[in-house]
Lab assay of single mutants.
Amino acid sequence: ENVVSAPMPGKVLRVLVRVGDRVRVGQGLLVLEAMKMENEIPSPRDGVVKRILVKEGEIVDTGQPLIELG
């Protein structure tokens, strides 16, 4: 699984990683606000951040690609 998608609609509050960062399974990639709750979106696997597909403040839909892992 190379693309991390939004599990719910919401607003991207914070991106916690940068392109080139090594991440571990379960590590927070970004914080999504949904229904006034902050939800940290975890990495599904170990890898390297290849691309960040959203910006802070952006509104996303369920299933929208957020981050690509390499």
Rank of each mutant, 00 (worst) to 15 (best):
L29A: 09
G26I: 03
E33Y: 00
V12K: 15
P7I: 06
G20C: 14
P44S: 02
V15R: 07
R22P: 05
V54Q: 09
E40C: 14
M35S: 06
T62Y: 05
P9Y: 03
L66C: 14
I59L: 04
I41A: 10
A6I: 00
N2G: 07
V17A: 05
V19Y: 00
G57L: 03
M8V: 02
I59S: 00
V48N: 05
I52P: 05
V54S: 06
L30N: 13
R51Q: 00
G10K: 11
D46V: 13
E58Y: 13
I67G: 02
L69S: 00
L29M: 09
R22S: 06
N39E: 09
L13I: 13
I67W: 10
V60G: 11
P9M: 11
A6W: 01
G20W: 13
Q27F: 10
K50L: 11
R18G: 09
V23D: 15
G28S: 00
K55E: 04
V4H: 06
G70V: 06
I59H: 04
I67M: 04
I52W: 09
N2E: 03
D21V: 13
R22W: 12
L29F: 06
Q64T: 02
V3D: 01
V25C: 14
I67D: 15
V17G: 09
V19F: 03
I52V: 00
G47M: 05
R18F: 11
E68S: 15
K55A: 04
P65Q: 00
P7T: 13
R14W: 01
G28E: 13
K11N: 10
E40R: 13
M37H: 08
M37P: 02
G63M: 09
L29C: 15
A34T: 11
P7A: 01
P44R: 05
L69F: 09
N39S: 01
M8R: 09
K11T: 01
P9W: 10
L69A: 01
E1I: 15
L66N: 02
S5H: 01
V25P: 08
M8W: 05
L29P: 15
P44T: 01
E68I: 08
G28H: 05
K55R: 04
N2L: 09
L30R: 15
M35K: 13
A34L: 09
V54N: 06
I52Y: 00
V25T: 10
M8K: 06
K11M: 09
V25L: 04
G28I: 03
G10W: 09
R18D: 07
R14D: 06
V19S: 13
P7N: 12
A34S: 08
M35N: 01
G57E: 10
S43C: 15
